[in-house]
Design a protein around this nucleic acid. Sequence first.
DNA 1: CCAACCTGCAACTGTCGAGTTGCACTGATC
DNA 2: GATCAGTGCAACTCGACAGTTGCAGGTTGG
Lengths: 105, 105
Amino acid sequence: MTSGTLVPVFAALGDETRWSILAALGEGDASASALAGRLPVSRQAIAKHLAVLQGVGLVEPVRVGREVRYRVIGSQLSATARRLEDIGAEWDRRLAAIKEIAEGL
Amino acid sequence: MTSGTLVPVFAALGDETRWSILAALGEGDASASALAGRLPVSRQAIAKHLAVLQGVGLVEPVRVGREVRYRVIGSQLSATARRLEDIGAEWDRRLAAIKEIAEGL
DNA sequence: CCAACCTGCAACTGTCGAGTTGCACTGATC
DNA sequence: GATCAGTGCAACTCGACAGTTGCAGGTTGG
């Protein structure tokens, strides 16, 4: 899903800090404040990144008492990978066809 | 290849205009000037985008007489997709493990 | 040789996004 | 109920990047 919006996902993944956040979340759900303790950026910066990640469906908020923990959605990553693979395959196919035409077949 | 630099590839793919360029190149190799005729941006803007795409190995320059045509490298796209898929799978695996721990197994 | 075309470099503008600080609000704890 | 930790909102700075225009350098064709 999030089908019409592939590019924003890549834009979200095109930032080192967000990968750091994803990596940190990979070791277990965590709140923005908790992440701020581990990463060299402020809590608000992380909150913004989490909003972006949530916007493209890579992350999901979970309320636990008064804090909001975030969880990585691995399936979204896999889905994006699959779609990218499809595009790559389509490209190879089309380029092969063009090459044949160019060679006069 | 281009192994240590996954993030810049995503950053490059996080731009609509660059996808337009890639799509246009998908119909056959073309020069920056030729692309400028098809897309609603100036030739220099396209030249910069092509430089970015070349920098991350998604595109390859080919000199034809006095012009420089660019060609899409589909394999780079596929390779990126595969690495993303690996990461997604790794994530799913780790998250499953964490879930088991959290459930007291 | 001259003209036309394509490329490349440089300077400039404008916008978007990353990051910061400060403050107000809410919920849990004693 | 007062306090404290956590979140959320808003304004601000700053740097990177998309896009533009202008001009210089090369290469091909007449």
